[in-house]
Design a protein around this nucleic acid. Structure first.
Lengths: 124, 124
DNA sequence: CACCACACTTTGCGATGCAAAGTATGACGG
DNA sequence: CCGTCATACTTTGCATCGCAAAGTGTGGTG
């Protein structure tokens, strides 16, 4: 019965990129994918509910992994760090999302077989 | 929060429980929700593609958080650790999944506005 | 000119994931 | 009867990581 059920690694979800699979960075990437023109540091900070230091660190990680690009410039006589997704970042993020969807589907499918199943996969 | 866009924490996803939001533990929980009767240690190990030590540690964390229960018994003259989701575990996992879905939806919605959008959550 | 606000960066630390090594026990071969 | 192997975990150690507090630099304000 080494079927779909007993298969090794059936639920290992290798596709869950460790760089992306992190609360804070997931927030950043989602924010950025929603703002294709890029976002300045302070806006990103507020959108993600992160502290300065925190965001700085995560941006460094994401930049290092070439998922986001960072442009340091000036605006209104102030330093401005503008961030946006790279093409690679977009692609990898979308791949990651596809795996997330798989997780949700797997779990939802399993859970709905139970009486208590309060999962609602389609609510807004 | 009149604006949908500039709202503080719009993408902060507070609901992403740190205990659950972890590749390995997500695997474990998904496996367990798919096997309401519980799973023995070795099966879980293979399903999740984890090493012994790794699984042991994560189970300890999950057990400590009261998300899974662990019964140590005997089977075929061998020690057998049987794991299954607690009621609380099921509930919290389902809550977590709802947030995950929100993440996927947010991102999908933003991404599909782009030409390259290779994401197909349901897109036309 | 002192002071404060803004825009980040760096540092320090406690927590964490992961893998390698350790423990315990039953089965098997000679 | 003894030694070796396999199974079923647990413990330990390290390297990484997230997070928050403190630090840096600069421009505006009274």
């Amino acid at each position: 019965m080494a079927r779909s059920d007993g298969a090794d690694g059936r639920f290992s979800y290798e596709g869950l990129d460790r760089i992306i699979h992190e609360k804070a960075r997931l927030s950043v990437l989602t924010s950025l994918v929603a703002h294709p023109k890029g976002l300045p540091f302070p806006d990103l900070k507020r959108l993600c509910g992160l502290t300065d230091g925190n965001l700085s660190r995560h941006l460094a990680v994401l930049s290092e992994a070439d998922l986001v690009s960072i442009e340091k410039g000036q605006a209104h006589n102030r330093p401005q760090t503008l961030c946006h997704l790279t093409q690679a970042g977009r692609t990898r993020f979308l791949e990651y999302l596809a795996v997330l969807e798989q997780v949700v589907r797997d779990a939802a499918k399993a859970a709905e077989r139970m009486p208590d199943g309060s999962l609602n996969t389609k609510t807004a």
